Computed example of a mutant assay.
Amino acid sequence: MLVGAALQPVYAADEFGGIVTAMEGWGIDQLWLTDSSMHAKCCYSFATLAALHSRTMTIGTAVTNPITRHPGVSAVAALTQHEISRGRFRYGIGAGDRPLLALGYKPARLAVLEDAITATRRLWAGEEVTWEANGFSLDKAHVRYGAPAQIPLYVSASGPKTLEMAGRVADGVILLAGLHPEGLQYAISHIERGAEKAGRDARPSITVFGYGAIDDDEEIALAAGRTIAAWFPQTAPEYCRLAGLPEDIAQRVKSAYGGGEFQEAADAARLLPDDFVRRMSLCGDKSVVRDHLKTMAELGIDCFAAFPTTDSVESRLRTVQVLAEVAAEIKAE
């Protein structure tokens, strides 16, 4: 199984290349960069830096959306990254999340997302596209510069309808489902259902994101994982039920979640039991990481990516490094 890192592009640009080189040296296979509108720096600029400072790791958006980025514009951006990275770019797209609210938008409907995927692939193939699609239009649109390419396309998904759509059409799925087996099995079953309905021979590749921190100090680790755990009652409540969170607590957390990025959910997060936080996030020491990796290997998951949520650069990178170390130890056994 592969291991990855998902980062918000908030680092100093002149330091980020060194961070990427270090991560590749640790054994990180996938690097994902968030496209968080005004909540971070430009993911495509940082993807360029990452491509120029690495040789083997894949680099992707996690994730862009068809609301703030027209599919035609995103198609060109992805083809450019494909060229710069010499084929290592992965195009991650989703409906969009709470950062859209600051721009006055709501997440995309499923039909808009699927049409955006279709349009993007047609443009990548070199077609001239005229289409009144759901949520956007194209009029004799075609890519003028850059060779046609088939770039691996990943869909970010949690809910059953998006998971099934991803199973039908995506090359990969970025899975936000917590880290406990019941939630992961639930999500995988919907992905496989979509793949089966489409007559595909196999389901798409699956990368699971684990938000939080790896730390010997459990309080630090729990604090890092608590805010993403508060995201689930608001955005993907089915995983709360599967993880055993009482309905009254889920409703209180949902009411207290003020919006914005998951890091802004501190008040809501304090309402959550520690056991629920452990089930939904990456929080603990090396032994916890080892358990997660073994569970995911048993479920046939292709990659586990750490999304560190601590404040300091050093602690975030330490989480990524420890994940790579534990994966290497397991592989050597």
Rank of each mutant, 00 (worst) to 15 (best):
A95S: 12
L175H: 05
G92I: 04
L113F: 08
S205C: 09
L184S: 05
S158I: 06
L176D: 14
R109A: 15
L179P: 01
K106T: 14
M165C: 06
L179N: 02
A202H: 14
T162C: 04
W131S: 07
L123H: 09
A95Y: 05
V208K: 05
S137H: 12
T130D: 08
W124L: 10
F89I: 05
F89G: 09
H190W: 10
S74V: 02
R121T: 04
F209G: 02
E164T: 01
R168D: 02
A195S: 14
G159C: 05
S137R: 09
R168I: 01
S156Y: 00
I84W: 07
G126M: 04
A125S: 15
G194Y: 00
H142C: 11
R144A: 12
R98D: 15
A141C: 13
G210W: 03
R88F: 13
E127P: 03
P148W: 10
A195L: 04
F89P: 06
P160G: 05
D115I: 02
A78F: 09
A141S: 15
A149E: 14
V173R: 00
T120D: 06
S158Y: 05
S205R: 10
A157N: 00
N134D: 12
S205H: 12
P99R: 10
R88L: 13
E164D: 06
A78D: 15
F136M: 12
E128V: 09
K161L: 13
A75C: 06
G183T: 00
F89N: 03
T207G: 01
I151E: 07
G87C: 06
R88T: 01
A125K: 10
D201Q: 11
V76Q: 15
K140W: 01
G210D: 07
A202K: 14
T162L: 02
E164C: 01
R122K: 13
L176S: 14
A95M: 13
T162E: 09
I84K: 12
D97N: 04
T118S: 13
G135D: 13
R88Y: 06
P152C: 10
E114S: 06
G126K: 13
R90L: 08
H82Q: 15
K161R: 15
A125P: 10
R86N: 14
E164W: 04
I117M: 14
A177W: 03
R90G: 04
Y186N: 08
G87R: 12
A111I: 14
G126T: 02
L184Q: 05
R90Q: 14
G146W: 08
T120R: 11
G212S: 09
S189C: 11
A157S: 01
L110I: 13
